[in-house]
Design a protein around this nucleic acid. Sequence first.
DNA 1: ATCATATGTGCGTTATAACGTACAAGGCAA
DNA 2: TTGCCTTGTACGTTATAACGCACATATGAT
Lengths: 184, 184
Amino acid sequence: MESDEITLKLKDVRAASGLSLSKVADLTGVSKAMLGQIERGESSPTIATLWKIAKGFQVPLSALIGTDDLRKPGVFRTVTFPGSIQVKIVFPFDPAIGAETFHVELSSNQSHESPAHAAGVTEEVFVLNGPLDVLQNGEWVSLEAGEGLRFPADVPHGYRAGAGGATFLNMHHYMQPTALASVG
Amino acid sequence: MESDEITLKLKDVRAASGLSLSKVADLTGVSKAMLGQIERGESSPTIATLWKIAKGFQVPLSALIGTDDLRKPGVFRTVTFPGSIQVKIVFPFDPAIGAETFHVELSSNQSHESPAHAAGVTEEVFVLNGPLDVLQNGEWVSLEAGEGLRFPADVPHGYRAGAGGATFLNMHHYMQPTALASVG
DNA sequence: ATCATATGTGCGTTATAACGTACAAGGCAA
DNA sequence: TTGCCTTGTACGTTATAACGCACATATGAT
């Protein structure tokens, strides 16, 4: 059976927590025997059990599951764009994961408007130095440093810095047009 | 036990694909009886079974699991392992773009090792406060604040902070949900 | 040293996930 | 209508997930 291509990260998570099997058993309601078997791959838990564990640890379920089967190289580059605003490429576009990340710096009171991108593009903004105002759907949202915002980018949007300027990361996620359109 | 607030989205995914239970059974290697039971909540599948289904559909495993507590834009949810690393969710996993972002904080000289995730996950690290050492394939790479590293996460890797601690963003990219259209 | 507590693993039983087959309902063709 | 194929569900059996308990080692205290 190739079902062993799943790697559950329970062992890692528990190691990070420093808790014993008994503690985790008490915390999650899953017997420590089962927890041990899961950790050493002798048992494939049901999602109900996994869910109990995730709830006990208060981690998202995805934190326990090692997923998927695609592999990618990837080297970090930095390129500086000349222009009105300063944009650096942090992570170049990779078609396999459909994502790219920019590092954007706005000087004092500078703003930058973007027309709507193609449908299926999701943008994420993580503010490094704020505050930063983000225009989304005709509405300005103010973000402090350390805050993030995710929004569909197929509507006009823009960014505006305060008096102290602003720096933020800007991730673009390109969705495959075929997939899962009707889900959610 | 109401610990089952999990909603499996298999029904939605299959509806989106337009495939019958028999076709899916043939495609995934899971009996259509079981698939039916899973869809109407009469059975809690093991992750091995869920994995077969995910592979058959070629969607990330998380696309089949509705955890509901996701999707809050711009919200930080803090997950702290006692005495260990501090992890905040910046952008929760979104099946449509197959990505999630964490905010990780390491205290002074603290390190965190991760065994290999399953293949298919690409990790990106963007250092907010450095320096940060990243272990990738037995090799420590030192990153300063503002630097980034992208690497496949299916090899053992880890993070190590210096004396001043470290803070970084950690993005996980899962494979694109490509293939629903091509199964038909 | 001995006792005590806590670690993780092995064993036997029960609950249930997963299977294959059989079945009833809904098209579609001739 | 009568086949014939497809849909999804119900039944009976097997495989195994999950349980509680007991065991062997380990760490700590007296």
